[in-house]
Amino acid sequence: DEVRLHVNGHTIEFRGIDEEIFKILEEAAKRGADEEELRRLAEKLLR
């Protein structure tokens, strides 16, 4: 299960996240989070 999030012209792939987590990451990206911040956030949410 892989999703792709487009951030500042880059595509970031995440594996094993559900739609709810994806929406949180998408919102963070809209607020200016970079790839590293998004990955840290995803790790926290998946715990």
Rank of each mutant, 00 (worst) to 15 (best):
D1S: 13
D1H: 13
D1V: 08
D1W: 15
D1I: 08
D1M: 11
D1Q: 08
D1R: 10
D1Y: 15
D1K: 07
D1P: 04
D1N: 11
E2D: 07
E2I: 15
E2T: 15
E2F: 14
E2S: 10
E2G: 11
E2P: 14
E2R: 08
E2V: 15
E2Y: 09
E2L: 14
V3H: 15
V3F: 15
V3E: 05
V3I: 14
V3G: 10
V3N: 14
V3K: 15
V3D: 06
V3A: 06
V3Q: 15
V3R: 15
V3L: 15
V3W: 15
V3Y: 15
V3P: 06
R4Q: 12
R4Y: 15
R4M: 08
R4F: 10
R4P: 06
R4N: 10
R4D: 04
R4S: 13
R4T: 11
R4E: 10
L5D: 03
L5G: 01
L5W: 00
L5H: 02
L5T: 02
L5R: 00
L5F: 03
L5S: 01
L5I: 15
H6P: 06
H6Q: 14
H6G: 02
H6D: 11
H6Y: 04
H6E: 15
H6F: 04
H6K: 09
V7S: 03
V7M: 06
V7Y: 05
V7H: 04
V7C: 12
V7D: 02
V7R: 00
V7L: 06
V7K: 01
V7E: 02
V7G: 02
V7N: 03
N8I: 04
N8P: 03
N8W: 01
N8D: 10
N8Y: 02
N8T: 04
N8A: 07
N8L: 04
N8K: 04
G9A: 03
G9F: 04
G9R: 01
G9V: 03
G9E: 05
G9Q: 02
G9L: 05
G9T: 03
H10R: 03
H10Y: 05
H10G: 07
H10F: 13
H10C: 04
H10P: 02
H10M: 13
H10D: 04
H10N: 08
T11D: 12
T11M: 11
T11A: 07
T11E: 12
T11I: 14
T11W: 15
T11L: 10
T11Q: 05
I12P: 01
I12V: 08
I12T: 02
I12Y: 05
I12G: 01
I12H: 02
I12F: 03
E13H: 11
E13L: 14
E13M: 12
E13D: 07
E13T: 15
E13Y: 12
E13F: 12
E13G: 09
F14P: 00
F14M: 04
F14A: 01
F14S: 00
F14Q: 01
F14R: 00
F14W: 03
R15A: 10
R15T: 15
R15G: 09
R15Y: 15
R15W: 14
R15F: 10
R15P: 15
R15V: 15
R15M: 14
R15I: 14
R15N: 12
G16S: 03
G16R: 02
G16K: 02
G16C: 04
G16V: 04
G16Y: 05
G16I: 04
G16Q: 07
G16W: 06
G16M: 02
I17N: 03
I17M: 05
I17L: 10
I17F: 05
I17K: 02
I17Q: 02
I17E: 02
I17R: 02
I17C: 03
D18C: 07
D18G: 13
D18P: 14
D18A: 09
D18F: 01
D18H: 07
D18E: 06
D18T: 14
E19N: 11
E19G: 12
E19H: 14
E19S: 12
E19Q: 09
E19C: 05
E19A: 10
E19T: 10
E19Y: 12
E19L: 11
E19R: 12
E20C: 12
E20A: 10
E20Q: 12
E20D: 11
E20T: 10
E20W: 15
E20Y: 14
E20S: 10
E20V: 12
E20I: 12
I21H: 08
I21P: 00
I21C: 06
I21W: 04
I21F: 09
I21N: 13
I21M: 15
I21A: 11
I21V: 08
I21Y: 05
F22S: 05
F22I: 11
F22N: 02
F22T: 05
F22M: 08
F22D: 02
F22Q: 08
F22P: 00
F22G: 09
F22K: 11
K23R: 13
K23I: 09
K23P: 01
K23T: 07
K23S: 10
I24P: 00
I24M: 09
I24V: 14
I24G: 01
I24C: 05
I24W: 05
I24R: 09
I24Q: 11
I24L: 11
I24A: 07
L25K: 00
L25S: 00
L25R: 00
L25V: 03
L25E: 00
L25F: 01
L25N: 00
E26V: 14
E26T: 07
E26M: 06
E26Y: 11
E26R: 11
E26D: 05
E26A: 11
E26F: 14
E26C: 05
E26G: 08
E27A: 13
E27I: 08
E27L: 08
E27W: 13
E27V: 09
E27G: 09
E27Y: 13
E27P: 00
E27D: 12
E27M: 07
E27S: 07
A28F: 13
A28E: 08
A28Y: 14
A28P: 00
A28W: 13
A28Q: 08
A28K: 04
A28V: 09
A28L: 10
A29G: 05
A29C: 15
A29E: 03
A29N: 03
A29L: 13
A29V: 07
A29F: 09
A29W: 09
A29K: 04
A29I: 11
A29D: 00
K30I: 11
K30T: 08
K30N: 12
K30F: 14
K30M: 11
K30D: 06
R31S: 13
R31Y: 13
R31T: 12
R31H: 14
R31F: 14
R31Q: 14
G32L: 01
G32E: 01
G32T: 01
G32P: 01
G32N: 02
G32I: 02
G32M: 02
G32W: 01
G32Y: 02
A33S: 09
A33G: 04
A33C: 07
A33Y: 14
A33M: 14
A33F: 13
A33I: 11
A33L: 09
A33T: 06
D34P: 06
D34L: 06
D34H: 09
D34S: 15
D34V: 11
D34A: 07
D34K: 12
D34R: 08
D34T: 11
D34F: 07
D34M: 10
E35P: 07
E35F: 13
E35I: 11
E35N: 06
E35C: 06
E35M: 08
E35T: 05
E35D: 05
E35W: 10
E36P: 13
E36R: 12
E36C: 11
E36F: 08
E36A: 12
E36L: 02
E36V: 09
E36W: 14
E36Q: 13
E36N: 10
E36H: 10
E37Q: 12
E37N: 06
E37H: 06
E37A: 07
E37G: 07
E37M: 11
E37C: 02
E37K: 07
E37Y: 14
E37F: 14
L38C: 01
L38H: 00
L38G: 00
L38I: 14
L38D: 00
L38T: 00
L38N: 00
L38K: 00
R39G: 05
R39I: 14
R39A: 02
R39K: 09
R39M: 13
R39Q: 06
R39P: 00
R40V: 10
R40Y: 12
R40Q: 08
R40M: 13
R40S: 14
R40D: 14
R40T: 11
R40C: 09
R40G: 08
R40W: 14
R40P: 00
R40L: 13
R40F: 10
L41T: 04
L41V: 05
L41G: 00
L41M: 13
L41P: 00
L41S: 00
L41N: 00
A42V: 13
A42F: 11
A42K: 03
A42I: 09
A42M: 13
A42Q: 05
A42N: 02
A42T: 03
A42E: 04
E43P: 00
E43T: 06
E43K: 07
E43G: 03
E43I: 08
E43S: 07
E43H: 08
E43R: 07
E43M: 07
E43D: 08
E43F: 05
K44Y: 14
K44D: 12
K44F: 11
K44W: 15
K44S: 12
K44I: 14
K44T: 11
L45M: 06
L45D: 01
L45Y: 10
L45H: 05
L45A: 05
L45T: 01
L45W: 06
L45G: 01
L45K: 00
L45R: 00
L45F: 06
L45E: 03
L45I: 07
L45S: 02
L46F: 06
L46K: 13
L46W: 04
L46Q: 08
L46N: 05
L46S: 10
L46Y: 03
L46P: 01
L46M: 12
L46G: 03
L46I: 14
L46A: 07
L46R: 06
R47C: 15
R47S: 15
R47H: 15
R47W: 14
R47G: 15
R47P: 07
R47N: 15
R47Y: 14
R47V: 15
R47A: 15
